[in-house]
């Protein structure tokens, strides 16, 4: 991928983000858009871990939970500004990923999946059982970011939906830009090399445990920031954000869109966030439809939606 292609990809996404609001019939669509962007951000992080480095994680919602609760707890207990709390959450997530990543990433395949799964469940258990601190399963409220009222003071009145649509779009673009840059960097090449063959990567002098750890920590930070943004835009958070289902949802989004492709992951996040909204009429069959889509994609488009379609368009090129 050349440098020009990277900018083309980013411009396409930015253009879509800018044009879409002109077709929104009501403010509710901004809200859905903001949700799509948040989910896409955590999935882009997962692409770095799963798509680039070939490591699986079924516990990434744990990091989202840490990011989310950092924004709920730090302002109330430590008196920090929510914006600082996002950074604090990201730092804690990174530190934790570093700490558990070293032993966990020695595992391969299913074992790695189960170990990360355990981590995610631990986080969500702590969040639901430490009632005194986190409010337990009933959740707790999250203070306002304060940016919107700042804009209002400057004479720029926008609704909550519009604000979060804009902010999350910018953060997602930055996230995509970093991920695409990483893809081309030496570290990114090393990640892809060990994805292809760990032994081969080792023989050409790649520090495999170190590179794996880097991918794990980076993707943890993505999930944490996404969790923080989610908490702040909802103004309320429950331990479900760290739950197993949320982890599975993230992996599903990545796999559906194309786990090796940043744009594909964004597409996957968009589809799986929008589907439940479109399917409200068939609420009872929602799970059925989702499952069917997953099975069909796995059978007919095993590399995920976007990469498979691009390959087809190019006549089996690449």
């Amino acid at each position: 991928m050349t440098c020009r292609r990277k900018w083309i990809q980013i411009s396409i996404i930015a253009a879509i983000m800018l044009v879409l609001p002109f077709f929104f019939p009501s403010g509710y669509y901004y809200r859905v858009g903001a949700l799509v962007f948040v989910n896409a951000l955590s999935v882009v992080g997962l692409v770095i871990l799963v798509g680039y480095a070939g490591q699986i994680s079924l516990g990434h919602a744990g990091f989202a939970g840490i990011g989310a609760y950092a924004c709920a707890l730090a302002p109330t207990h430590l008196g920090l500004h929510p914006a600082v709390a996002i950074l604090l959450g990201a730092l804690i997530s990174a530190a934790l990923a570093l700490l558990i990543g070293r032993p966990i990433l020695r595992l391969k395949g299913y074992y790695l999946g189960v170990a990360t799964l355990g981590f995610g469940i631990l986080v969500s258990m702590v969040l639901s059982n430490e009632r005194a601190l986190t409010g337990g399963p009933d959740g707790m409220s999250v203070p306002d970011l304060g940016l919107r009222s700042l804009l209002r003071d400057m004479g720029w009145r926008i609704s909550g939906g519009e604000f979060w649509y804009g902010l999350n779009a910018v953060v997602l673009l930055i996230g995509i830009w970093i991920a695409l840059n990483l893809y081309q960097s030496a570290t990114g090449r090393a990640m892809r090399a060990l994805h292809g063959s760990e032994v081969a990567a080792q023989t050409v002098g790649i520090d495999v445990p170190r590179i794996k750890l880097q991918a794990f920590v980076i993707s943890a930070v993505y999930a944490s920031v996404a969790g923080s943004l989610l908490a702040l835009q909802n103004g309320f958070i429950t331990p479900e954000v760290a739950g197993f289902m949320h982890s599975v949802e993230m992996v599903t989004m990545a796999v559906l869109g194309g786990v090796g492709s940043v744009l594909g992951a964004t597409l996957g996040a968009a589809i799986l966030t929008l589907l439940p909204q479109v399917l409200t009429v068939f609420a009872e069959y929602e799970q059925l439809v989702l499952g069917l889509i997953m099975v069909l994609v796995m059978i007919f488009l095993p590399r995920g939606l976007l990469p498979s379609i691009v390959a087809k368009l190019r006549g089996r090129g690449e």
């Binding site: 019939p25 009501s26 403010g27 509710y28 669509y29 809200r31 859905v32 949700l35 959740g139 939906g161 989610l230 909802n234 309320f236 958070i237 429950t238 479900e240 954000v241 439940p276 909204q277 409200t280 609420a283």
Partner: peptide, 21 residues
């Protein structure tokens, strides 16, 4: 009537949808 499946996230989106849409 919307089914939020017990997910506070969805509930919030549906509430916005109820009011604005």
């Amino acid at each position: 009537l919307y089914d939020d499946g017990g997910d506070p996230n969805k509930a919030r989106t549906f509430a916005t949808r109820l009011v604005e849409d």
